[in-house]
Simulated assay, not measured.
Amino acid sequence: MYDLILKGGRVVDPASGLDGMADVAFADGKVAAVGPDIDPAGAPVRDVTGRIVTPGLIDFHTHVYWGGTSLGVDAERIARRSGTTTFIDAGSAGAGNFPGFRAHVIERVAPRILAYVNISFPGIYGFSKNVMVGECGDMRLVHPHECLAAARDNRDIVVGIKARIGAKAGGMSGMAPLHLALEVADKLDLPVMAHIDNAPPSQKEVIEVLRPGDVLTHCFRPWPNAPIDGKRNVRAEVLAARERGVIFDIGHGQGGFSFDSTRTMFDEGIYPDIISSDVHILCVDGPAHDVLAVMSKFMALGMALGDVVRCVTANPAAALRRPELGSLAVGTPGDATVLELRDEPVEHVDVSGERLRADTRLAASGIVIGGAWWADGDAPA
């Protein structure tokens, strides 16, 4: 009857309101049963006693066009060590190279990859330790008709339009790339993900044009363009965006996450909607590493396990308009992550170099994709 059973674990599935000991059974690529003491009836069994079983982790902000862009990392390598079963690529490819991303990476790897299309035709093409050219710095590359066609032709895997705004990504283009991204997104009824680095423009200008369901990534970034002012007050435009339904995504990366900003936001009762890594070639070995490392940082900052899991399962799935990806309910896609909470000292680092010590961290023990055991965890120390 079943193809695989995960037996004896603590199932943490916020979408289903479940946090307790249970078995999870899979059949025909889907979740078939969740409950105590499921009879294997001859099915393969994985003993996950002492482990945590969650819906397959969704890393909502990544760059996994490996080999086709200079910032891309290998999705399968990151999946094994982090327990990620679904990667959302945040605009690595634009209309000019999206077919290559689809054919050479998305359709060839085991983890699921969905993508935002970059409003800039070549995508993120000049990104390395020694070369940094913002793809929106030359408005000749920002062509809404090309982006619209690429997104429309790939609607099965496209989840939105990406615009990187700021002095680094856009030079003196200001708000123009974001306005064009919003035009394309409106035409297709898709959300926009907005990156903000250094001014110009200001975070205020960017955040005030975002609509309900659009995503502000790097939402807890350090100064400049931090969500807090010099007196450590949450900025009014941030509160207004939160109120109208803009989605707050961490997007740790090399420059997008600050312990200081996060503590202040927490003090005001403001938590992220989504925890993501923004993993790419310059942060894959630190400070971001992967989504599991970022989850551990948020637990070290005081977030409960269940709340952290919600931010990498149910919440991103809802933002993607694919709620079935964030749950272990019967009939949902058969993706699951097996985690271990290890009692061992760890020193976390944010993008400003601040260090935070903790006594526990999460590690990946294994992954189920499509109802089959895909890989054992290989989490780095």
Score class of each variant (00 low, 15 high):
5 I>W: 05
17 G>Y: 09
20 G>P: 02
27 A>Y: 14
35 G>H: 14
35 G>I: 11
36 P>I: 06
43 A>C: 13
45 V>F: 10
48 V>Q: 06
55 P>R: 09
55 P>H: 12
56 G>E: 01
64 V>K: 11
73 V>P: 08
74 D>L: 15
86 T>F: 02
96 G>T: 07
102 R>S: 05
109 V>Y: 08
114 L>Y: 08
116 Y>V: 03
117 V>D: 07
120 S>E: 09
120 S>V: 03
121 F>K: 05
126 G>S: 12
126 G>Q: 12
131 V>I: 15
132 M>K: 15
133 V>C: 06
133 V>H: 10
137 G>M: 13
138 D>Y: 05
138 D>W: 04
138 D>A: 09
141 L>T: 06
144 P>W: 12
145 H>Q: 15
145 H>C: 13
159 V>S: 07
160 G>Y: 12
164 R>M: 07
167 A>T: 14
169 A>D: 12
169 A>W: 15
170 G>Q: 13
181 A>M: 01
184 V>H: 06
187 K>C: 05
188 L>R: 10
188 L>A: 03
189 D>G: 01
190 L>N: 07
194 A>N: 10
200 P>D: 07
219 C>Q: 05
225 N>A: 13
226 A>R: 15
227 P>T: 03
229 D>F: 08
249 D>V: 00
251 G>R: 00
255 G>E: 12
257 F>M: 09
258 S>Q: 13
261 S>I: 01
264 T>V: 11
264 T>D: 00
264 T>C: 01
266 F>I: 02
282 L>R: 12
290 D>H: 08
294 V>Q: 06
303 M>A: 04
314 A>V: 06
316 P>H: 08
320 L>Q: 11
321 R>M: 11
324 E>P: 00
328 L>E: 03
331 G>W: 15
333 P>E: 07
334 G>M: 13
338 V>K: 01
344 E>H: 14
344 E>R: 14
346 V>I: 10
348 H>T: 04
349 V>W: 15
355 R>L: 02
357 R>I: 00
361 R>G: 01
372 A>N: 09
376 D>C: 09
376 D>G: 11
